[in-house]
């Protein structure tokens, strides 16, 4: 047996990346970012608000958190929906108490199903980020450009109409993209995405219609990842969030501003037994001097004007 010759050919083996979306860059050798108000850390809290359709397809893959019991999966359909009915309001109340302005990444279909939820987020002074259409509509290269464009346009339309906001931020379900996704996002007026997990600072990505910013969002300290993939305790989650903050805060003294991202899920951190751990994490971060909290879109704008 052997493999075809081209298995040993490497057409993208060259300096820098093996694609054209962005240049390689060393986090520690960049021009330091000075956040406009002298802050050391920009705190970017992004709460996922998700709808998992009962009939969500399993091909080509399921987004994390997907229903996993035999159809009809009452168990996880309702558990995830708990986040939309109850959990999110606990998170919103805590954020209001702390006077934090954050981002909520919301599946477009939520605007149609639960406009009151979107209104509550808007009234809380938060930014709406489009989180695709629903958790069953994952983005991948098997979609035609037209199909994918329809999903993106529909998600943005629903959220823009319901919220009255411009909605320029994007988070794909499962942070999954196809080859065309950044181009289609930019075409639809999206200025930044939260999908790529390769940096602690924003950076620019190329698209066919101009740049889009990749905003940092932690992957391994995401509340769902820690709870549902690592099966670690709430205390372990808080410890890792604090440890993450400590290192970024320390680095900011030497290397310039950093972004501390805190990805949350209304159906995870909004549980009664978890929400006080979220308070502990927030209290810890906010006890430090030089923490600037803002929605991801504002941090993105500050990055752009700093550049």
């Amino acid at each position: 047996m052997s493999m075809p010759d081209n298995y040993l050919e490497y057409p993208a083996r060259r300096y820098g990346m093996d694609h054209d979306r962005y240049e390689w860059s060393d986090l520690f050798k960049r021009k330091p970012i000075a956040w406009s108000n002298g802050a050391r850390i920009a705190l970017s809290i992004v709460t996922h608000v998700q709808h998992f359709p009962l009939d969500m397809p399993s091909k080509p893959f399921k987004a994390p958190g997907a229903l996993s019991m035999p159809y009809p999966d009452f168990r996880y359909y309702t558990n995830r929906d708990y986040g939309n009915r109850v959990g999110i309001y606990r998170v919103l109340r805590l954020l209001a108490e702390k006077q934090l302005k954050t981002s909520f990444a919301i599946n477009g279909i939520i605007a149609d199903r639960y406009p009151a939820l979107v209104q509550a987020v808007v009234e809380g002074g938060h930014e709406i980020v489009a989180h695709g259409l629903d958790m069953g509509k994952v983005h991948h290269s098997g979609l035609s450009e037209d199909e994918e464009n329809r999903i993106i346009a529909e998600a943005l339309r629903l959220l823009r109409e319901t919220s009255g906001q411009k909605v320029e931020g994007w988070l794909s379900p499962g942070r999954a993209q196809g080859f065309n996704t950044p181009d289609l996002l930019a075409k639809n007026g999206v200025t930044y995405s939260l999908d790529w997990a390769n940096d602690d600072l924003p950076y620019e990505m190329r698209t066919k219609v101009g740049p889009i910013v990749a905003m940092p969002m932690a992957y391994e300290t995401d509340d769902r990842v820690v709870a549902d993939e690592y099966f670690q305790s709430e205390a372990d989650w808080v410890q890792q969030v604090k440890d993450r903050f400590d290192v970024l805060y320390r680095e900011s003294a030497e290397y310039g501003g950093r972004v501390m991202s805190l990805p949350l899920h209304s159906w995870v951190s909004g549980m009664p037994y978890r929400v006080e751990y979220l308070r502990e994490a927030l209290d810890y971060i906010l006890s430090h001097e030089g923490v600037w909290n803002a929605p991801a879109g504002e941090i993105c704008a500050a990055f752009r004007s700093a550049g």
Partner: peptide, 23 residues
């Protein structure tokens, strides 16, 4: 695990070459 490009896993690995190796 996902069809190419699996941007989440790809970018997670790429983190090592942009930020992780220095630490």
């Amino acid at each position: 695990a996902r069809p190419n490009p699996d941007v989440l896993q790809y970018s997670h690995r790429d983190y090592g070459n942009r930020a992780g190796w220095q630490r």
